[in-house]
Design a protein around this nucleic acid. Structure first.
Lengths: 303, 303
DNA sequence: CTACCTCGTGACAACGGTGTCACCAGCTCC
DNA sequence: GGAGCTGGTGACACCGTTGTCACGAGGTAG
């Protein structure tokens, strides 16, 4: 039996025979499978990443196994072990906990890994990141250009690498521009506390006139909290989101490109599989400021 | 070497040994892998389904292979063949084309399949659907109760089973309530044409005062087109979406529960894997009308 | 003390392809 | 016509794990 295409759907029709890929892979050692570990498949950011990865995998005739670590480093390690047990050709991962030293185990040796969105300490590997500092800086500069002197930063949980990175970028950008710095609240945020925080920030004699939110989730809860608190603020969000243009006012955002991130990471991985043995590479993707209307002084009312 | 847990991350640390699951599965015949075929992993509806499926799979110690058919029946068949070649224990699929007779091939015999969102003709299998007619009826009744006598229906491409189903439900519901019926436009919709349609519908001497949109995607493009057209209409959307409550006015929707759909389908599949040999089952999930403000007479302005 | 039973250990075949090697036929060239 | 080369075919070992079977040791009962 010769190999016909990739399993041969023609052969299937005629003979009702399907090659057992398991046996084939056991013998040949080539599994043609990629493992993808991320935080939550239901999050639109990650699902866009996953879709892009899947597209590249299909192009390269590989299948994709996905697993969500849901923020648990333990679960993530379990998934990794399961994937390596299946002898995936390569691994793409959004690392949850900080330490990935265990990935350097002998057992994993030979399985190339590419990290997305966050770097992993304790292990040398390719990484695809986004320009968090640059993105935050562009947002701060945009707000400053519209006359804002006191900007608040609402970040996600400081344990997330991207969250602390964006916070640091915020500090640096505000300092560099001579703006007030240090009005910062890190998550997790719930709607009620956030509304209280926003009321506090907008009261007093040096009120915040704009807030920068640290990601998708924070942006959404902030918009709700703003309504609850009945305060009017300029808002710029990190991460673009569907319908941002239909809100009143339309929300200015620092857009990432999750599809580009997934594609880039997948291509990097396939380069390794194609025999590229150069040292670990780190790719930093640019962000793009999408100016809508929410950045003006006077905030949400000002259009 | 005894089997320690599920691969033993403890053993990995100590010995740097990882069992080859491929060999194990070849020998035992149990693959502990589920294949999921859907249209587009990046669509929030499907990614919520996928996340729920993955959760059930993890609970049952199975891994999940995902593939997006992207609306192409051919690609979908290719994925199916690839999955069956890997001897997945079971298959979950959102069927793209109408005819799934080829799934009844001898080669697939023994691989249980559960269909989601749409039924598949030409093959007997479990199916999890949503109550499309009921959902549409609840929306029409809601609009009628708010005084609307002439409602327009904006459906997706009539080739989609759910789209035509909802259209038929709309016809039935409007007739039953003695409302004007037949003001219908099926997709695909682009923003410009849709704006023109909306202008036409709201002109004349029997103007439409409310529209019901057939799904997520149509709702979003409709909201944009309404803005472009500068017309004010009550809108009820099929499918809930993030931030619907923050639009002005907040959009009333017929909510589906994609997570419930994914979970239900996965559990049905595992029942089969556990040896349930009863005849094919069909589960119809209810929809839930989430009343916000967009259904009132006077439409988007009326709050 | 012997026969029988139980338990533990070790060896081995099998899962289903795949890559290699040997063997044989047919050919060309000296 | 014989030697050497090429191509095609068939047999077989191997990938790593698992389930079975046989054998031997140790224990108990008659």
């Amino acid at each position: 039996m010769t190999r016909e295409g990739k399993g041969g759907s023609a052969a299937i029709d005629r003979l009702g025979f399907v090659r057992n890929d398991g046996a084939s892979r056991l013998r040949s050692g080539r599994t043609e499978t990629i493992g993808l570990i991320l935080e939550d498949l239901a999050d639109p950011f990650y699902s866009a990443v996953a879709a892009a990865v899947e597209r590249v995998c299909r192009e390269r005739h590989h299948l994709l196994i996905t697993g969500s670590g849901e923020g648990s480093a333990e679960r993530e390690q379990g998934l990794t072990v399961a994937f390596v047990s299946r002898r995936v050709a390569g691994l793409l991962a959004v690392p949850a906990g900080p330490d990935r030293a265990w990935l350097a185990q002998d057992a994993m040796a030979g399985t190339p890994v590419v990290f997305l969105d966050r770097p992993a300490s304790g292990v040398q590997a390719d990484t695809v990141l986004v320009d968090n500092e640059g993105g935050v800086r562009s947002a701060v500069e945009h707000l400053a250009a519209h006359g804002h002197r006191h900007i608040g930063f609402l970040g996600d949980h400081a344990g997330f690498w991207t969250a602390s990175r964006r916070r640091d970028g915020f500090q640096a950008a505000t300092s560099a521009l001579g703006l007030r710095s240090g009005t910062i609240a890190m998550g997790p945020h719930d709607r009620e506390h956030l509304a209280a925080t926003l009321r506090r920030w907008t009261g007093g004699d040096d009120p915040v006139t704009a807030v920068l939110t640290g990601n998708n989730r924070v942006t959404v809860v902030t918009l709700r909290a703003l309504r609850d608190a009945g305060v009017d603020l300029a808002v710029v969000g990190f991460d673009d989101f569907e319908l941002a243009d239909l809100l009143v006012p339309p929300v200015t955002v620092v857009a990432q490109d999750p599809a580009a991130m997934g594609e880039r990471a997948a291509r990097l991985l396939f380069q390794r599989l194609d025999g590229d043995t150069r040292g670990p590479r780190s790719v930093v993707l640019p962000t793009r400021l999408i100016v809508r209307a929410s950045g003006s002084l006077g905030g949400r009312a000002g259009r």
